[in-house]
């Protein structure tokens, strides 16, 4: 990444993080944003905590040009929450693109003065890449919600089916099929 832009981003990191965090908070009902922002206890306010911690780490990773796969855990934490809250898919995911808004707002003057538009485009492409990773995570979370329903049904009925000889368990030694599930 362009060193000048990197320096500027680092310089204004805390302002950008705050701007981004506040913008994410505004996707929640007005009556709730105060609580989500102010309550710092991670157990009393897991949503606010996950978003505050995650947004900081994700921005750091973007600025440092780290491999995005390294910061996916934080992205996963945020998306896992938003995937079960009352958002449409687009609203749940919009928070990624809010980084662009925050950077543009906080560095508007500096980018213009230093003619950093090309560098900004490059940086924003990285955000687009992050959005694609985020889409994978979101889809996986939503798929998992359906899997959980199926698993719950299986747990409830397994004993009955086994008892009625409607189900046969393959003994462990014959079962050499490896776990094919891939984790993101």
């Amino acid at each position: 990444m362009d060193m000048k832009l990197k320096d500027l981003l680092n310089e204004k990191k805390s302002a950008i993080t705050k701007n981004w965090f506040d913008a994410i908070m505004e996707t929640y009902p007005t009556d709730t944003t105060g609580f989500l922002k102010k309550q710092k206890d991670m157990f009393a306010n897991p949503v606010g905590h996950v978003i505050a911690e995650g947004s900081e780490r994700i921005l750091e990773a973007l600025i440092e040009g780290e491999e995005l796969t390294d910061s996916l855990r934080f992205l996963d934490d945020i998306i896992r929450v938003r995937a079960v809250q009352d958002f449409t898919p687009s609203k749940a995911m919009a928070f990624i693109f809010l980084i662009k808004k925050s950077v543009r707002e906080e560095l508007k003057k500096e980018i213009s003065q230093n003619h950093l538009y090309d560098a900004l485009l490059e940086f924003e492409s990285k955000i687009d890449e992050l959005a694609l990773f985020a889409l994978d995570i979101y889809s996986k979370c939503r798929e998992q919600l359906n899997e959980l329903k199926i698993d719950e049904l299986k747990r409830l009925t397994f004993t009955l089916l086994k008892k009625a000889n409607l189900m046969y368990e393959i003994p462990v030694e014959e079962f050499e099929h490896k776990d094919l599930k891939c984790n993101i």
Binding site: Y28, P29, D31, T32, F35, L36, Q39, A44, N45, P46, V47, V81, V84, Q85, D86
Partner: peptide
């Protein structure tokens, strides 16, 4: 009580206060 409910904490929906 407002921020003590697990449904409010998880959803942010004010009607769950």
């Amino acid at each position: 009580c407002a921020d003590k409910c697990h449904f409010y904490i998880g959803s942010g929906d004010p009607k769950n206060m």
